[in-house]
Simulated scan of single mutants.
Amino acid sequence: MKTVLCYGDSLTWGYDAPGPGRHAFEDRWPSVLQDTFGGQVRVIAEGLNGRTTAFDDHVAAEDRNGARVLPTILGTHAPLDLVIIMLGTNDMKPFISGSALGAKQGMRRLVDIVHRHPYFGEAETPDVLIVAPPHISETANPDFAALLTGGVAESRKLAILYADMADETGCGFFDAAQVAKTTPIDGIHMDANNTKALGRALAPIVRVMLGL
């Protein structure tokens, strides 16, 4: 059985904006992705609210720096055949990075970590699929609008930056904005229909990368 690690933030965790709460397990995109393979693939969801690519954020109890936590996650779940990384939305916060370029640099660091990690025994280095998250959208929620000032425009730059980097580093690439939109309730999270759509849309490229 092939094993896929989904490394992300609240979009992978399954944050449901209206609650706020969490989408049902079967509606989260990693769960939908796994279901498309009918038992051939085990999909591990490693999502954390507020996770960044490679930047510190000390406003939460958890360590949100994706680069610092990733080596432990890789060791915990090895051997892995594919690592899907969908991060960058939280990098748009002005007090984190505030720019798509910063997110790209952080994503490159994550790719380097996956490629250079000393995997146990004879485990091979997994392939990497970089996913540009769906665009941040305008919202009337004052807290989220202030939290992501400038993020609407910057988030739209991520796909081209990530695509170029994927070519440079030999990774797969997928633009989630082609199939999913964020809800105007808060501007950054997906409703159940959109998160399920993302899981279904990722299946063909994952199938090719796994050789199935």
Rank of each mutant, 00 (worst) to 15 (best):
V4T: 06
L11E: 08
G14K: 07
D16S: 07
A17T: 00
P18E: 03
G21W: 02
A24S: 07
E26W: 12
P30C: 11
V32H: 04
Q34H: 08
D35M: 13
F37P: 12
G39V: 09
V41E: 00
I44L: 15
E46Y: 01
E46R: 13
D57A: 09
D57N: 14
V59A: 12
V59M: 12
E62I: 03
A67I: 13
R68N: 12
G75H: 10
G75V: 13
V83F: 01
I84M: 06
I85K: 00
M86Y: 03
N90E: 10
D91K: 11
K93G: 04
K93W: 02
L101T: 10
G102C: 06
G102D: 10
G102H: 09
A103H: 00
R108N: 12
D112T: 13
Y119Q: 08
D127F: 09
V128F: 05
V131Y: 07
V131D: 14
P133A: 07
H135Q: 09
S137I: 12
T139F: 09
F144I: 04
G151C: 11
G151L: 11
E154C: 05
S155H: 08
R156Y: 05
I160Y: 05
A163K: 05
D167N: 13
E168I: 02
G170L: 00
G172F: 05
V179M: 05
A180F: 11
K181T: 15
G187P: 10
G187V: 10
K196V: 04
I205V: 15
V208F: 12
M209F: 11
